[in-house]
Simulated scan of single mutants.
Amino acid sequence: MRIVIFGASGGTGRATVDRALAAGHHVTAVVRRAGALVVGAAQEARRGSGVRSGLAAVVVADLTDVDAVGEAVRGHDVVISALGTSERGPVSVCADGITGILAGMDRAGVHRLTAVSAHGAAESHDRSLYCLALWAALPHKMRDKERMEQAIRDSGTDWTVVRPAALNDKPYTGRYRTGTDLKIPLTAAVGRVDFLLRESVNPAYPHQFPRIAA
């Protein structure tokens, strides 16, 4: 498949790029600045200015540039959004970014979208200890995720929004749980698994919000 990944320079984006390449897909990794992409095993294949076979890096400095986003996604089968930020104050990275991505997809005629959000957004805020702790620590990020989710809900895309528990960088084991009604305990952190890729290639949750937990 031809897959375009936004947020490719972040932890989840890098892991998804690397696993998609390992599975033999053609990947376009969208980054905000040249040189931002560093991808696990793909580092070993760099030769001068080239990168691993099957990988193209495209710089789109501003995701509100619909023309640039449209050109980046044109000709692809699926878009993966792994947008996020390490900022802790008021943010709109996910909401603003997805607005540009959706407009670019519409312009390019690409319809399949898989996006990563977070458990605790919107109706998944179940007042559990996990959600209460998450909202106490990261309220601005969670509001940004909710605005992003609403934009996706309102779009005409064939979407899936994935809501993982907290993500960490533990070694990948391939063992994790998924479902739309998983209970997420306070200690439910999970490594950066392959579910975004799996759901993009073989959708099992169209127009749904599956959760991921260890």
Rank of each mutant, 00 (worst) to 15 (best):
C94N: 14
A204G: 11
R112G: 03
E87W: 07
L37H: 02
A41K: 00
I98E: 05
F209Q: 04
S117N: 08
L55Y: 02
H140V: 07
L197V: 09
D67R: 13
D62N: 10
G75A: 06
G10P: 10
Y205R: 09
G10C: 12
E71H: 11
L134S: 11
M142V: 05
R112Q: 01
A133T: 13
E123S: 09
L182C: 10
I152L: 11
R107P: 06
H207I: 02
A103L: 10
K170W: 11
V79M: 04
V73C: 00
T64L: 11
P210V: 00
G13M: 03
A166P: 04
A41C: 10
K141N: 15
R192V: 14
V58N: 07
T28Q: 03
R147L: 01
R143C: 09
L102I: 06
R33S: 13
G109T: 01
I5A: 03
A133I: 10
G13L: 10
R147T: 01
G120T: 01
Y176K: 05
S92V: 06
M105R: 04
V38N: 13
A137R: 15
S49F: 15
V58K: 13
G89M: 03
A103V: 13
S92I: 06
D77E: 15
G11V: 04
R127Q: 11
V30I: 06
V17H: 01
S124N: 05
E87K: 15
P206T: 06
I184H: 04
T173L: 00
Q208V: 03
W135N: 00
T187A: 12
A136G: 08
I5K: 04
S200G: 15
F195M: 08
H119N: 14
H111M: 14
A189K: 13
C131A: 15
G89T: 02
Y176I: 08
D194M: 08
V30L: 01
L83D: 06
H207A: 07
D96W: 04
V27G: 02
G13H: 12
T187S: 13
D62A: 04
I80L: 15
R46E: 12
A61I: 10
A118S: 11
S81G: 03
R147M: 07
E87Q: 12
D194Q: 02
G89L: 07
L138G: 01
A22R: 07
G13V: 12
T187E: 13
E146H: 01
R88N: 10
D194G: 08
G70M: 06
G11C: 01
L55K: 10
L182H: 08
Q150L: 14
A20L: 01
L102R: 01
L55H: 05
V91Y: 09
G191A: 14
A82H: 06
A29F: 06
L186H: 04
G100S: 02
